[in-house]
C-alpha cells in the first residue's frame, strides 16, 4: 500500500469544464456531446463555437448517465434523456420524502 501526502485538487465550479475535458471524463468523443447539447439533452454555458462552451459539474454526472443508458440499453438519445430526467426527478422527490418522514 502506498500513501501520498494530502492532495489538493481543483474544485470544479459551475461552468468549469471545457468540451474536451468533459469528453475525456466521460470517455466519449466530443461530437457525441455536441449533438446532445444541440438537441437540448445537455446544458452548457457560453455561446458560439463548441470550444467556447463550459459545463457545470452536474452535467458531468448527467452526461455519464446518458452515455450509460445509450450503451447499456441501446437507447436512442431521446429516450436516454427522458430516463435521466426521470431519474433526477425521482431523486429529488425521494429526498423530499425522506425529509418529510423524519
Amino acid at each position: 500500500m502506498t500513501h501520498d501526502d494530502i492532495l489538493t485538487g481543483e474544485l470544479l465550479d459551475d461552468a468549469r469544464l471545457t468540451l474536451d475535458e468533459l469528453a475525456l471524463a466521460c470517455a466519449i468523443e466530443p461530437g457525441w456531446i455536441i449533438e446532445r447539447v444541440e438537441a437540448g439533452y445537455l446544458c452548457c454555458m457560453g455561446v458560439g463555437q463548441p470550444q467556447a462552451w463550459r459545463f457545470a459539474s452536474a452535467e458531468l454526472v448527467r452526461a455519464r448517465q446518458l452515455r450509460a443508458m445509450e450503451r447499456d440499453f441501446d437507447a436512442n438519445p431521446e429516450l436516454a434523456a427522458l430516463v435521466v430526467d426521470l431519474i433526477e426527478e425521482v431523486r429529488g422527490l425521494r429526498q423530499q420524502l425522506s425529509r418529510m418522514r423524519r
Partner: peptide, 19 residues
Amino acid sequence: HTLEVRIPKGVKEGQHIRL
C-alpha cells in the same frame, strides 16, 4: 492505493474535485 484529499471549504453537493 490510498489518497488523502483536501475537501475545500465552501464545497457544494454534486460538485466535483479534479485530481
